[in-house]
Each structure stands twice: as structure tokens, then as C-alpha cells.
Write a protein that binds this DNA or RNA. Structure first.
Length: 421
RNA sequence: GGCAGGUUGCCCGAGCGGCCAAUGGGAGCGGACUGUAAAUCCGUCGGCUUAUGCCUUCGAAGGUUCGAAUCCUUCACCUGCCA
């Protein structure tokens, strides 16, 4: 049963940055199940935080009774959506195919593939690969005035530095996807990130021109920090969803460290907590910010969504062990070892324990020996929660916590373990 | 096409023959203060066996010089002005 106010729900959650006619869409939602699609290009082996917004939005819509088509861009991934930074380098067909599989695997757990409004996975490679150039230029290309394409922001920003015909044509492919899904599956809504807005409206226009039909598009906002910079960066790079590219512990830590100001906004976008629960947490954050109830709820919910409950528990107990402020020696080996393995650890043999500086480098806490020495000089290096002052200090047997572990920390937040075996 | 100017470290931007690994600001990193928040203040900010030492860096390649980011030549790209 479609709930009649899913659009209001999306608006309340701050998920609508741009849209075509909202009233028309609200009406469509009210009349029954709407078939909608959202696309993901395989440009990396894993999706990241930005994609998660789309995945969760798709799930919200499905839960409200609408029917998802999740598109993986086996074709568009071969071409590359133009971005301001410059021309992309092309990936091989094999690489793209492999990434398609991985991306599919990351989307599937979030959608329901059974029941009345079962989700469908589609790949635009299926209807693009065999398309003839003549047909493409006549049936699709004819509807795209170049003067309009040139006026698009991304394209304009690239005219100076240069843009290949390949990337320039990207929008045609994405628009064709929408047209195909409209024709073959009755899809009437596409959404995507706000950086996709131009591509979304291009599809809407194409369908209007070729089919005379009015279809819908909405764009979700770009997540930014309060200083306006982009969200979703960790020391290691993007906030990947793949646990082999970003550990669940690091993922959990990211959300736990979110600014107070952004907690409410992120809870709305990234959790399925109810309006009441979110308002309650937002109020707690305002009144008792030091409890960080909002951050904790956010971290737990998102990590559970992406990595499951067991990983969330592991990340939480690791954080508790490492940041709980308790005596490290008092922790059971299983807790401490687990925590350090979550946080990242290296192994050295008992006879060859290197100096603190070398350990900082080999655990990745410092980027070079110079950086490591600097850190020690600044008082930012800790061994077993005690500040290290001598960069050449070599930990001895007495320093081993539980006989096995050295707990190395840089600054307040970055911890790594050294397993001495 | 002609004339003038520019290309510096993650980014912006000084330097204009030795005192330059290169002023300053931003980002980053660390410390203090806090709450694994924000703001603020302080420090730090190419690499190496930490060294009055070496290596790599000032668009690219050559050259002049005891010595160049700084001068000359060629090339590439960018920006103004004139056609």
C-alpha cells in the first residue's frame, strides 16, 4: 500500500534539492505504485557515501509501495560522465564488467526483490551495446540541440580546458536509459544526486519530445560540512561502502565524529529512524552535546545498514576499548586484540621490534619517518596511552599489553596496534 | 596574426644570481581548551640512516656562471591588449 505522503517524508528529510513539478509527482504517488529508477556508474570498485544517499532513498520509496529499478551503468561507465576536474581516463571493458558485479552486490541488500513491488536490476549495457550508430544519431541525437548541451554548467566549465566528444555525449546515453525504461517498464521517475540534475532533466525532455509524456525527476542534495566543503572524506580517501576498502571500524568512526551542527541533517538522510526519534536525538544534541547521543545513534544505524549488526558491535566495542579511557592492561585480550585488529594493526616478531618512529610509519599513522619524528617532537605520539618523548625508543617486553600488543596512537583519534609474536 | 605578461611546494601566492627547501595565507597534521564536536590560541608543515650532511622540487629541455627558482635560448600551456 503506497503511503500517501512519501514526498512529504522526503521533503522533511531534506532529500529534495531540485525537482520537476512536485505537485504532479505528489499526485502520481497518491494514485498508486510509481515505477522509478536510479542509476549507478561503475567508476570504482565500490560505491561510497554519496551513492548511499541514493540507495537509501530508493529503499524509502520502495517501502512506501513504489517500484524500484536499480540501474548499473555498464555502458555509461564505459563513457564517463563529464566532471569539472577534467577528462576521465577510460576503463577497460573487463574492469567495468567486474565493477558492475561489485556495485550490483552492494545495492541488492538494500532492496526487496520479492512481492508486489519487487525491485529490478537493469544494466544499460544490455540495450546500448548493440545499438547502431546510425540509429543512435537519428533516434536520440536528433533531439539534442548542441547549443543547449553547450549551455550546461559542466560542459561550459570544460570548454576552456577541453572535453572529448565521448564525455560530451554522455548525457544522451543517460537520457536514452530513461526513455527505454519508460517505454519498456513504465518508469516515470528518475532521481539522482544534484550533480546529476542536468542529466535528469535531459531525460525528462527527451521523453517529452519523443513520447509526448510528462515524467518526473528529483535530485538529492550534495552533502557538505558546515564550512561548505564536501563530506565523505576520511584520511584514506572516500567513505567507501566496501569493507575491504574501508573497515567497518573506520566507517563507524567517521559517523561518530560528525559535527554537532550536522547530526540532525545526517540522521534524516542516512537512517530510518522515525521523525519523533530524530527530533528527540536532535534535542539531546542541543541540550547535552557532550553526550553525543546523536552521533552515536547515527554511527550505529548507518554502520548496521551497511555492514550489519555484528560489525557494528565489533566497531563499538573496539571504540569503547580504545577510547573508553580505561586501563588498557585491564582489558581482556580478546577485546583489545579485536579492537586493534579493527583499528588496523601490523605484526612484528619479538626479536626485531623496531623503534617507535618506525612503528608509526609501518602502522600508517605517520606518512614518513620525518613525519613520525615530527609527531613525537610535537608530543602527539603515544605508546599504550603514554606520551612518547624519545623517537628512538624501542619498546621492550615490559611494554607489551597482555604480553602481545603495543597500542600506538597519534593525536587523539588515530590508533593502531602492533602484534608482537 | 602582432605586442605585453604569466607558469613556484596539496591550493593560493611572494621571491627575481649566493643568506632559498624557498616569506605569507589556506588546507593538512600535532598540542592546549573540550565532548573522539565546533570556534579559538600555539606549534608544525618535501624526502632520507636527524645530519653545521645528502637527495628531489620552483612548466619542459638545453645553455651562461665558481654558483640559478632567479640570466639566456628553444618548446608547451595560460592571461591581458591590439588586429
Amino acid at each position: 500500500m503506497p503511503t500517501d505522503n512519501i514526498l512529504d517524508e522526503l521533503e522533511w528529510r531534506g532529500l529534495i534539492a531540485h525537482s520537476t513539478d512536485l505537485d504532479a509527482l505528489r499526485e502520481a504517488f497518491g494514485q498508486g505504485a510509481v515505477r522509478f529508477y536510479v542509476g549507478f556508474d561503475p567508476t570504482a570498485p565500490s560505491l561510497h557515501m554519496g551513492h548511499l544517499v541514493q540507495i537509501l532513498t530508493a529503499r524509502r520509496l520502495q517501502q512506501a509501495g513504489h517500484t524500484p529499478y536499480a540501474l548499473v551503468g555498464g555502458a555509461t561507465g564505459m563513457i564517463g560522465d563529464p566532471k569539472e576536474a577534467g577528462e576521465r581516463s577510460l576503463n577497460s571493458l573487463d574492469t567495468v564488467k567486474e565493477w558492475v558485479q561489485r556495485v550490483r552486490g552492494q545495492i541488492e541488500p538494500f532492496l526487496d526483490f520479492e512481492g508486489a513491488n519487487a525491485a529490478t536490476m537493469v544494466n544499460n549495457y544490455d540495450w546500448t551495446a548493440s545499438l547502431s550508430t546510425i540509429d543512435f544519431l537519428r533516434d536520440i541525437g536528433k533531439h539534442f540541440p548542441v547549443n543547449r548541451m553547450l549551455a550546461r554548467d559542466v560542459v561550459r566549465s570544460r570548454l576552456e580546458a577541453g572535453i572529448s566528444y565521448t564525455e560530451f555525449s554522455y548525457v544522451l546515453l543517460q537520457s536514452m536509459d530513461y526513455l527505454n525504461l519508460f517505454r519498456d517498464h513504465g518508469v516515470t521517475l528518475q532521481f539522482g544526486g544534484s550533480d546529476q540534475w542536468g542529466n535528469l532533466t535531459a531525460g525528462v525532455d527527451l521523453i517529452r519530445r519523443t513520447e509526448g509524456a510528462r515524467v518526473h525527476a528529483i535530485a538529492t542534495p550534495l552533502m557538505t560540512k558546515s564550512d561548505g566543503t564536501k563530506y565523505g572524506k576520511t584520511e584514506g580517501g572516500a567513505l567507501w561502502l566496501d569493507p575491504s576498502m574501508l573497515s567497518p571500524y573506520a566507517f563507524h568512526q567517521f559517523w561518530l565524529n560528525v559535527e554537532d551542527e550536522k547530526v540532525e541533517e545526517l540522521l534524516k538522510v542516512f537512517t530510518f529512524l522515525s521523525r519523533e526519534e530524530i527530533e528527540e536525538l536532535a534535542q539531546q544534541t542541543r541540550e547535552k552535546p557532550f553526550l553525543r547521543a546523536g552521533q552515536k545513534a547515527l554511527a550505529d544505524h548507518v554502520t548496521t545498514l551497511v555492514h550489519g549488526e555484528a560489525e557494528t558491535e565489533a566497531a563499538k566495542s573496539a571504540a569503547q576499548a580504545l577510547f573508553g579511557g580505561g586501563d588498557l592492561a585491564g582489558l581482556p585480550e580478546s577485546t583489545l586484540g579485536g579492537a586493534l585488529r579493527e583499528a588496523g594493526s601490523v605484526r612484528v616478531s619479538a626479536g626485531e621490534v623496531p623503534s617507535v618512529v618506525d612503528l608509526l610509519v609501518s602502522t600508517g599513522l605517520a606518512s614518513s619517518k620525518g613525519d613520525a619524528r615530527r609527531t613525537v617532537g610535537e608530543g602527539g605520539a603515544y605508546l599504550n596511552n603514554e606520551r612518547v618523548t624519545d623517537p628512538d625508543l624501542v619498546p621492550g617486553p615490559d611494554d607489551l599489553v597482555g604480553g602481545v600488543w603495543l597500542v600506538l596512537r597519534r593525536g587523539k583519534k588515530k590508533v593502531a596496534g602492533v602484534e608482537v609474536a
